[in-house]
């Protein structure tokens, strides 16, 4: 599998070119520091030096100014919404997708509507949801729900449809009922794709949330970076971006751990 090959590859490469990589990484920060703090090529409110950014990031954990919330409050506000919309989308989307993949009739009934809605990017739902639910938590959770549910439906249905006929025949030969086949053959073999869909949705959800918070919010990481921009606090903008990236990466990692625990036979392909 590609992922495994990549890992092996990286481990080998890491040792070999570790030093050059380290130099490159260091020079990234050194150049950043030189252009901003030493040569002052950019105005500090346009492009602050890394030390200022780092200080701003640390300070944000206990200082509420200028946007009225500490970093953890913002993270929590965003995380709560993201997980809420994401969980709802997954809980509804995956079963619908499984039904679509399993039953041809359901597939033919749902797919046309689905094709109609899917090309609309999640961001484009924001205004409609804001009209419906007002500038509150519900609107943003709804945007995330929409973006999650479409990907979950799509991947679950493809995953179920890709179940190998031979496996189904074996189960049939041993007298498995249709329901038994669904739960013990089709769903387990669709799990890797379902998780791929969850992963994609998680990234999309996190990104859409940030965008939604930039447009209308009073808390959250998207609000933090948008507000800091208006206050010309670029150091806080970058600090917020770092936090958005970090939380996104942690969410991805957690999902990966869940996948490793749930999906069996991942390495047997």
């Amino acid at each position: 599998m590609l992922a495994d090959k990549m890992e092996v590859h990286f481990v080998k490469e890491k040792k070999k070119y570790f030093i050059i990589s380290l130099c490159s990484l260091l020079s990234f920060f050194v150049i950043w520091y030189l252009v901003t703090a030493v040569f002052r090529l950019f105005p500090p409110q346009g492009f602050p030096d890394p030390v200022t950014v780092f200080k701003a990031l640390i300070r944000k954990f206990y200082v509420k100014a200028p946007d009225g919330g500490t970093m953890l409050q913002h993270v929590w506000a965003s995380l709560k919404l993201a997980l809420y919309g994401f969980a709802l989308g997954a809980v509804i989307g995956i079963p619908v997708g499984i039904v679509m993949g399993w039953s041809k009739k359901a597939d033919m009934l749902i797919t046309p509507i689905f094709h109609f809605l899917r090309p609309i990017p999640p961001i484009a739902w924001i205004p409609l949801m804001l009209i419906f639910f007002g500038i509150g938590q519900t609107a943003k959770a709804a945007v995330i729900f929409v973006s999650t549910v479409t990907n979950c439906i799509l991947n679950a249905s493809i995953g179920i449809r890709q179940t190998k006929d031979v496996h189904l025949w074996v189960a049939q030969t041993f007298g498995a009922s249709r329901l038994y086949m669904l739960f013990h053959v089709a769903i387990p073999s669709a799990l890797p794709l379902i998780f791929a869909g969850l992963n994609l949705s998680m990234n999309l959800a996190w990104m859409s949330l940030v965008a939604a918070e930039m447009l209308a919010a009073t808390k959250g990481l998207g609000y933090l970076i948008q507000y800091s921009r208006m206050m010309a606090r670029t150091d806080l903008v970058i600090a917020g971006m770092i936090m958005i990236t970090l939380v996104g990466a942690i969410l991805n990692k957690l999902l990966g751990m869940l996948e490793a625990a749930v999906v069996k036979g991942r390495h047997m392909q």
Binding site: M207, V210, A211, T234
Partner: peptide
């Protein structure tokens, strides 16, 4: 970095 997080910068 999520693409849209670049907006303010």
């Amino acid at each position: 970095i999520p693409g849209l997080a670049w907006i303010p910068l």
